[in-house]
Design a protein around this nucleic acid. Structure first.
Lengths: 314, 314
DNA sequence: TATATTTACGTAAGCACTTACGTAATTAAT
DNA sequence: ATTAATTACGTAAGTGCTTACGTAAATATA
């Protein structure tokens, strides 16, 4: 067991499986001890029918948390042993209703003591422990249902990686990256327009000289994202040239850039931040929303691809 | 999950397996997320080699708690992918030493972040829980190693059944049971002697009238055991005619009868309890020992089958 | 020094589930 | 009234382990 302490939590799954095997392993001997002719794997199905109810295969599967083929197979075996009776549904001919037979009920009664003894044996182990396994499992089941482990790991990854992202001021050295990152996303979704070429080739003249600002996101020293604010005549700033390399997705870079730009706009005394986008860009729109932008009906845009306008008023 | 609450602890094994599956299920996606070309099931072997050590198949199996065929198979697959190198042992040609290859080491380095993120994700779940699953598993592993679940259930069964056993005074109605139970065990081990017939046919004359006592054990109304004390000339009592039906084994009946007889001997003012037996009857001897009897060298016995004498002095 | 036992490991088959897929029967949509 | 989608279920094959068994090498015993 030492190994598991070393691998850390990574091996939680294996460890659970091993404990489960340890608990299950001797189940057959227990049934033997009570002279109950039942395979341990039948137990969930058996138990689910033990009140004498009629249930369909799918009902049982759902109840015990197996797949229906598994239940189907177990039922077949138990029918073979004479513990279960089948009958086709009358209203719905697809259904296969099953019940415990006479013999099955006899076994159930015989099992009473076994159930009792196993339960108290386990409960006694529980009493010897400081940490309640039963409740702990319950909590885990609940938490994993709320949010899967995969999702949790994804979030962890994003968090760690976004810590490795640096948001820095634009410098001429980033000119090519600024151009290419923006061109990349524009051409994958739309066509480069006249306006685009102006802005991307001459960021200084087009953005900075007018009192705007450009941020670049660095990941492991590489420029992987850009975003700019451009001063508007009404005292606000336009958020534009938001571009993140697809290779650097899932690191929260868009959010970091957006937040930095909003912060800068506020610093520079802007009254609001305005932006134009396209509803086809779902993730972008949802990012803007998360950043605090709200849809507005604004003035017409010089860009063809613009079909939505948003703003964030300070 | 409701089902598991109802079945009670009986389904602990299944429940553990299901949780383990839930945790393991998405493992493949996690590896994908980090672009690590490793099958989840390889992980334990991989981890065990990750420090770059050379290990034999059996070493690894022992370490990770799998069987050697499992390790053998996993190693074969990993060799196929080029992550592991094999070399026959030089001093012991049976051994198959394996190490991580260059490619394997590369994967290991790539996995660093994954390990980190998974660990923190799981640790965060832990923090959300009130009951510590990790520690609970550890406790269970320990306790089951100490005493298996089967043993614990057996003890529970014995305890419950011995509660259903009644020890009552002998009455003429039990004459046949008294005879048959004793004859049964004597004939399975030895031959009935002259003395036996006397005692078994006339318990009143042979035992009771001389100031002795007979107890009968009842289980579900049936006489399933007997035991007697016979007054001796030296002021002690001889424990004799201890017989328990093989059908009623494992209910602690011998112990209950023995204790009742000792108690009675004390009540009747006996100075000691003496008995004769045969060393071939291992369980009986060990029962007598548990009851407090110790081996002595006593006077010769009228029974041929006697080769050990024990006593319990008050 | 020959023989028996143990150890290391591989292959095959089994186990208790699963996923994948196919076929009726039923229900919904046009 | 067709056609499409959904549901119930069975069969087959896959999965990740296990046990069972066989073989070769090493070690213990006579």
């Amino acid at each position: 067991m030492d190994f598991y302490e070393k691998t850390g939590k990574m091996a939680l799954g294996s460890r659970l499986r091993r404990l489960s095997e340890q608990v299950t392993e001797q189940a057959a001997s227990v049934y033997n001890l009570y002279e109950v002719d039942l395979q341990p794997k039948w137990f969930p199905v058996f138990y689910s029918l033990s009140e004498g109810e009629e249930k369909s295969i799918t009902d049982i599967a759902r109840e015990i948390g197996h797949t229906h083929p598994s239940v189907s197979q177990i039922v077949r075996e138990m029918v073979g042993r004479g513990y279960i009776l089948e009958k086709k549904g009358t209203t719905d001919a697809r259904k296969n209703f099953v019940v415990l037979s006479e013999a099955g009920i006899k076994v159930r009664d015989k099992m009473q003591h076994q159930l009792e003894d196993v339960t108290t044996a386990i409960e006694k182990v529980m009493k010897e422990t400081q940490y309640d396994l039963w409740k702990a499992i319950g909590e885990w089941e609940f938490l994993l249902e709320q949010k899967s482990l995969l999702r949790r790991v994804q979030e962890e990854k994003k968090l760690r990686e976004s810590n490795e992202v640096q948001i820095v001021d634009y410098e001429p050295a980033y000119a090519k990256a600024f151009h290419d990152l923006n061109e990349e996303w524009i051409t994958t979704w739309f066509k480069m327009e006249e306006e685009d070429h102006h802005a991307l080739d001459h960021p200084k003249e087009h953005i900075l000289d007018g009192g705007g600002h450009i941020y670049v996101a660095l990941y492991k020293g590489q420029a992987v994202g850009t975003c700019a604010i451009i001063k508007m005549k009404d005292g606000g700033f336009e958020l534009a040239k938001m571009a993140v390399s697809p290779k650097a997705k899932g690191k929260g870079i868009g959010w970091l850039l957006g937040r930095a730009c909003i912060e800068k706009a506020r610093e520079l005394g802007g009254t609001r931040v305005y932006l134009e986008s396209n509803t086809r860009l779902k993730p972008a729109i949802s990012l803007y929303h998360k950043l605090g932008f709200r849809k507005i009906a604004g003035p017409p845009s010089p860009y063809e691809r613009c079909d939505i306008q948003m703003e964030l008023v300070f």
